[in-house]
Computed example of a mutant assay.
Amino acid sequence: MESDATYRGTVYPWQCDHVGHMNIMWYVGKFDEANWNLFARIGLTPTYLRQSGHGMAAVQQNISYKRELLAGDLVEVRSVVLDIGDKSIRFRHEMRNAETGEIAAACEITGVHLDRRTRKSTPFGAQLRRQIQDHVAVPQSLEA
């Protein structure tokens, strides 16, 4: 899968903490926005989720912080799907300083496909699973 940007934005001064760099809550927020863009790209669109009665829930998230981001920095997140199971998907985001290209943080997430009515995990449909499978990649690096 080509790792096109799944998020682009800016670090605002009010997103910075007492040390002067972007607070961890904003890393999580920007990664969350990248999730939804990645999901739409692989078939888990808002329309699919609304009409099917399904949803996605994160069950594990691991973030590695590499370089600080400061107010005014431009941010870009690129994402890849690492694996798909019957009911789950694992993917990775890399957040970079868009000006320097340096990796600021990386996040690996496992998400579960669920039935919103029963609040229980449910298998991906065969067609959706094949569509997602077409996007699975083993990333060497997400560099452009």
Rank of each mutant, 00 (worst) to 15 (best):
T6D: 01
Y7E: 04
Y7F: 11
G9W: 02
T10V: 13
T10K: 13
V11W: 00
Y12A: 09
Y12R: 10
Y12D: 08
W14V: 12
W14I: 12
W14S: 12
W14K: 09
C16V: 12
C16Q: 07
H18E: 14
H18A: 15
H18I: 14
V19E: 11
H21E: 03
N23S: 08
M25N: 15
V28E: 05
V28K: 03
G29F: 07
E33L: 12
N35G: 06
N37V: 06
N37S: 11
F39I: 05
A40R: 09
A40L: 11
R41K: 13
R41Q: 12
R41G: 09
I42K: 00
G43Q: 05
G43E: 04
T45C: 01
Y48W: 10
L49P: 03
R50G: 06
R50Y: 08
R50D: 08
G53E: 08
H54N: 13
H54I: 08
G55V: 10
M56G: 10
A57E: 14
A58W: 15
V59Y: 07
Q60A: 15
Q61R: 14
S64H: 14
K66Y: 06
R67C: 13
R67I: 09
L70A: 13
G72D: 07
D73L: 05
D73Y: 03
L74M: 15
L74T: 15
L74N: 14
V75E: 06
E76C: 10
E76R: 11
S79G: 10
S79A: 12
S79Y: 05
V80C: 15
V81E: 07
D83R: 15
I84L: 05
D86E: 15
K87R: 13
I89D: 00
I89H: 00
R90N: 09
F91P: 00
E94A: 08
E94I: 04
M95A: 01
R96I: 09
N97D: 10
T100N: 02
G101T: 02
G101V: 04
G101A: 04
I103L: 02
A104W: 01
A105Q: 02
C107P: 09
E108P: 11
I109E: 05
I109Q: 09
V112P: 03
V112W: 03
H113L: 01
L114Y: 06
L114P: 04
D115E: 08
K120W: 12
K120Y: 11
S121T: 10
